[in-house]
């Protein structure tokens, strides 16, 4: 790693102030950022750890019935604490990386990074979550802007993520054999006013909603409602681990499985 300064503020306000320095960068769980720094692919002047900010930790419910997850809450805690209220989200959190990664990695860090193979973006997008920052609230549909790209401004920190709870939902991940990230992951969420389907891992533009599947499932929430539906291979990621056609195929397979598993 290149040399950098380290700061660990205890309030959001202090963190925002600390991030005003040129080339300062927020450090949440660090499970993606630190390996990136080890490869010397980034050279922040300062890392501002968000791990000491009590107001960004923990899980609660708001008056709208949404589950509000502090952005610095590690995956393991989400897996344990929302299992009753939103089992699909808990299962997703409990399947990210490995146990040690889940003890450090955070929801805010994952969404801020928006890795095209990360799990959380699919949950946020399929749930119609609200990404709360130090400055504003951003709807998931506006938040994700392509691979590693988000609506966040420079120095803006995610402080909380609010999840509406669907009637039923499921996440199905097909792991890339080496990294165990999602080669493709599909999150299906059924709400009273319709079904949302978000796909991660597959597209060159990062997480996306599969509109045709949503329409079909909104009309009939059953796996066979998807029969005959497929995505074009165009725009899908193609690499050592799978062709674009394979990924497109997996999206359809996993969406059916998610519908079948939804609870």
């Amino acid at each position: 790693m290149y040399a950098f300064d380290f700061e660990k503020p205890s309030t959001i306000a202090e963190a925002v102030a600390a991030l005003k320095d040129e080339d300062a960068q927020a450090l949440s769980g660090g499970q993606t950022l630190l390996p990136t720094l080890k490869q010397r692919l980034a050279s922040p002047s300062k890392l501002v750890s968000l791990g000491g900010i009590a107001e960004m930790q923990g899980i609660c419910h708001n008056d709208a019935g949404q589950i509000c997850i502090g952005a610095a809450t590690p995956h393991a805690r989400v897996a344990a604490e929302v299992a009753g209220d939103y089992p699909a989200l808990a299962a997703l959190a409990g399947g990210i990386g490995d146990p040690a990664v889940r003890n450090r990695g955070t929801i805010g860090g994952s969404l801020a990074n928006n890795d095209p193979s990360a799990c959380y973006p699919s949950a946020a997008l399929a749930s119609g979550a609200v990404i709360v920052t130090n400055a504003r609230q951003i709807a998931a549909d506006e938040y994700f802007q392509g691979m590693f790209a988000t609506a966040l401004d420079e120095g803006e920190i995610i402080t909380e993520v609010r999840f509406p709870v669907p009637q039923s939902a499921a996440y199905v991940k097909f792991e890339q054999p080496a990294s165990r990230f999602a080669l493709v992951g599909v999150f299906v969420a059924r709400f009273a006013d319709g079904v949302r389907v978000a796909v991660t891992g597959a597209s060159e533009n990062g997480v996306f909603r599969w509109a045709e599947a949503e329409a079909a499932l909104s009309a009939n929430f059953a796996a066979d409602a998807l029969d005959g539906l497929s995505l074009p291979a165009d725009g899908m990621i193609a690499d050592l681990h799978g062709s674009a056609a394979y990924r497109a195929h997996l999206v359809a397979v996993l969406t059916k499985r998610a519908v079948a598993n939804a609870s």
Binding site: K8, L34, P35, K38, A100, R104
Partner: peptide, 26 residues
């Protein structure tokens, strides 16, 4: 150096953590 092998696993505040993917200062 990609946080995958787990040879560096320790416990921090009672839970397992990859010590190669956590800053000492943190």
């Amino acid at each position: 150096d990609t946080s995958q092998c787990g040879a560096c696993t320790v416990h921090v505040n009672g839970v397992s953590v990859k010590a190669c993917t956590m800053l000492a200062a943190d």
